[in-house]
Structures are given as structure tokens and as C-alpha cells.
Amino acid sequence: MHGRAEPPPQQPWLLSPEGEPGASPAALGLAPHGAGARPVPDDFSACSATLPVRHAVAAVLLALLVVAMGRSGPILDAAYGLDTLPGTEALITAAEAWHGAMQTLGIPQTLDALHGAFGLAE
């Protein structure tokens, strides 16, 4: 991960000086008024870890690839539900091939077994 050693470590909006547009919620007056009121914390700070865009893109693609591997059944169902348009046939063929490959790897079966054993009831 990047972000600890490279100054400045954040998106500019995380480093804006207090009171200027783009500053933290507390600086913008979104913090509670009154004595003793604690400021509203933010999810992000100068300590938040960051990635450059190419690493973030790779990570997002990998995450969605893994999801697509496990969700090959619903993807196939969605393909079957598509309106008949040019290209629909090719999409269905691709979805069938993808689901077949995942079944060969045993991924949908494993997830079905997990759902059966530990899934929260409908």
C-alpha cells in the first residue's frame, strides 16, 4: 500500500485547510454545537491508506472477477432473461461457457453447500 511515505498522502480534499470549502465536516460547521460536544468523526483522515489508480483498478477488477466466479449461476440466469437483441445470443453463450467452467472448478457447488449449511433462512 502507498500513502504512508509519500507526502502528501491523501486526496486534496482530505488535506484542505480548516474553514475552506472542501474541508472536514467539523471545519464546515457540521460538528455539533455546544460545550462538551464531540466533533463528528470522519471515515477518512490523513492516516488513511491510499493506492494509485492503476493498483486500485487492478484490485477492483480482481474483486469483481472473484464475485463473478462465485455468481456464475445468477449471471447465466440474467443472460437468459435478456431481451432478444443483436448480441444477446453471444452473451448467453459466453455466460454458459463461464458457468460451465466454474462448475468444473466446483465453485458454485461449494457455495451452494455453504449456503445450505450456514446460510440464513429465506
Binding site: 500500500m1 502507498h2 500513502g3 509519500e6 502528501p8 498522502p9 491523501q10 486526496q11 486534496p12 480534499w13 470549502p21 472542501g22 474541508a23 465536516p25 464546515l28 457540521l30 471515515d43 477518512f44 488513511s48 491508506a49 491510499t50 493506492l51 494509485p52 489508480v53 493498483h55 486500485a56 484490485a59 477492483v60
Partner: peptide, 20 residues
């Protein structure tokens, strides 16, 4: 006041808080 300045400026591609 918080969001428009972000819309008016490009996001920095070097710093995406992916983990959070």
C-alpha cells in the same frame, strides 16, 4: 459548500483510499 469544490477540481489518481 463541501461537495462543489470537489466537482470543480479533478480527483487525484495517485491517492485513492481503496482500503477504507
Amino acid at each position: 459548500a463541501h461537495f462543489l469544490p470537489q466537482v470543480a477540481a479533478p480527483s487525484d489518481p495517485r491517492r485513492i483510499p481503496f482500503l477504507m
